[in-house]
Structure formats: C-alpha cells, structure tokens
C-alpha cells in the first residue's frame, strides 16, 4: 500500500545543466570587494548540485531523475534513472544502445564521469565551444525524454510520474536562439511540463523568466551563490503539486520582452507580421519568415468593399 502511494507521488525531474564556460565564469561572481557569499567554485557548485539530486532521489523511492548537459554544440545525457532507461528501451526495442554508465548504481559517480568525458572532448576542440550554450537543445531533449517516459507508462497501464525540468544556467541569453527556445518553452507549456529555472549570473535571463512564467515553474536568481544548495533544497525540491501548499518566494516580475527576428535584439515595442506573427524591430517591406509583402500598404475598407461588390 505504501509502495502504491509512493508510486502515486513519484515525480520525474530533468536537470538541465549548462556545461559551458559561461556558467563556470559566472560562478566566480562579478564583484570581489569582500562579497564572499557571491563566489562559488566549480567544485562547490557540482558538489551542491549532486547533493540536491541525491536528496531529491531519497525523498521518494519511485522518484526519477535525468541530468542533461548543454554545451555550445550539443546536449548530452549524463545520467538517467534506470527505470527511465528501461522504459524507453522497452519502447524502442532491445537493440537500442544504452549509455555506457547505465550499470553504475551511484548517480553522482555516473554524472561526474560522463561530465568529465564531455569536458575532455570540449577541451580537445576549443574552437567549437566558442558559441553560446544550446538551451533550446537541452530543453528539447528533456522534453523528448519526458514524453518517452509518459508514453511507456501509458503503454504499461501505469500513471506517469509528474514531470518537471530544472535549468541551471549562467550564460546570458543568446538572442539568436530566441525562436528555438520559445518553441521549446511553448512545447513544455502544451505538454504540461513545469520548467523551473535557477539563473546563476548577476543579470536576469528573459528566456528562463518566461519559461517559468508560462509553465508555472519558479524562476530564481540566487543572491548568495555560495549557498546554492539551500536555494535548491528550499525551492526546487518540492514537486509541482506540493508547491500549492507552500509559501514560496513570489516573483517580482517577468521581463516579457521579445527578441526581434531580424537582429535578435530584445525590444519593448516592435512590428508584428499580421500573417505569421513574426516580430521585427523596424518596419520591413516583406516578412522574412512567411514572405508577406507589406509594401503595398493596407487597402482602405471602402475600396475593399467596392472591389468585393465588383467581383460579385
């Protein structure tokens, strides 16, 4: 009976970890004049994230976790709970190749080993890692994983775990990825996946704010980065259904600015294509997305009517 209720309450957490120098640099903080609480070493950061993941897993035996690392070129699955992997393998058939560390019973070891491999590859190809981290890729991969788990649970006649994603980001928003990120966020919203976000930089992330706002998650930019674990445990440990009973920090506000499709600039006021809703920062003669021609101008209503009556 107890096991059944555990299974009822189980949840699935996908941690999206930015494995990019943008995050490593931000951990150090931007201020050195005695503000020790703002500094967090990479060592300390990884340790605190691992403690959080282990705590989350120990809350409920049936809890599942997956860790995805997002780099500038790809996203990699660092760890996934064995039940998740079994579910997806049964769905895809036995021939699908599983990650090498699947057999490891210690999630921390597995995460660290896979992260080390990933970083080693990045170190060997430094030129490749110049671009911003692929938040959209990580989000999409996480959503795919969640969807797989859902489908397999449905196939097995079980109730699927409540899915949730937690983004740990440090780099500033890459406006060139605006469309991809927003699409991923809308997909998460549609599939009712809560996206939580923890921004580890000194400035807010518009993307993550909007992601949390649209999916009912929590966005937070910790002021005292050295105690990141405390934020993670207090805010991000409870699942989405328990949160309604808790008094969690209220967001001060969300920056709803969109990035224009032409220059990827964040804008307050802009031009919108009336056909495909593309956003532009300046008046254009033709929509670059759907090709609608704006140069002809709007036909006055009276003329339109007259044209219609003539056609008739």
């Amino acid at each position: 009976m107890a096991q059944d209720s555990d299974a009822e309450d189980r949840s699935l957490l996908v941690v999206l970890l930015e494995a990019h120098q943008g995050l490593w640099s931000q951990l150090n903080g931007d201020n050195v004049s005695g503000e020790e609480h703002r500094h967090l070493t990479i060592h300390g950061f990884l340790q605190q994230v691992l403690v959080f993941i282990n705590t989350y897993l120990s809350l409920n035996d049936a809890n599942q976790v997956a860790v995805i690392a997002a780099t500038s070129t790809s996203s990699a699955l660092l760890h996934a709970s064995s039940s998740l992997l079994h579910a997806s393998s049964s769905l895809l058939g036995a021939t699908t190749k599983q990650p090498a560390a699947e057999t490891s019973s210690n999630p921390s070891q597995e995460i660290l080993a896979n992260l080390a491999d990933l970083l080693r590859i990045q170190k060997e190809h430094p030129g490749v890692a110049a671009g911003p981290a692929l938040l959209s890729g990580g989000l999409s991969r996480g959503l795919c994983l969640i969807n797989k788990a859902r489908v397999s649970a449905r196939a097995g006649g079980k109730r699927s775990a409540r899915p949730r994603m937690l983004c740990l980001q440090g780099s500033p928003d890459a406006t060139q990825h605006y469309i991809a990120v927003m699409n991923a966020i809308f997909a998460a919203q549609r599939s009712e996946v809560v996206v939580d976000a923890c921004m580890l930089a000194s400035t807010d992330s518009t993307f993550l704010q909007q992601a949390a706002h649209l999916t009912g998650g929590i966005y937070m930019r910790p002021k005292q980065r050295s105690a990141l674990l405390q934020y993670l445990l207090t805010i991000y440990c409870p699942d989405s259904s328990s949160r309604s009973h808790l008094q969690l920090p209220q967001p001060l506000g969300v920056d709803f600015r969109a990035s224009c499709f032409c220059h990827r600039r964040a804008i307050d006021v802009g031009y919108i294509c009336s056909v495909c809703l593309s956003i532009f920062c300046e008046s254009v003669s033709e929509c670059t997305t759907c090709g609608t021609d704006f140069s002809k101008g709007r036909m006055p209503a009276a003329k339109r009517k007259a044209g219609n009556s003539l056609d008739a």
Partner: peptide, 16 residues
C-alpha cells in the same frame, strides 16, 4: 579563486 577570472572547461574538468 577570488579574482574575477574567466574559467574555462579545463578548470571545470579539473574540478570534476
């Protein structure tokens, strides 16, 4: 570690 230096992936690898 207290100075604001840009840390790279190799620093992260060392930490891992």
């Amino acid at each position: 570690a207290t100075a604001p230096s840009s840390l790279t992936d190799s620093d992260a690898l060392e930490a891992v």
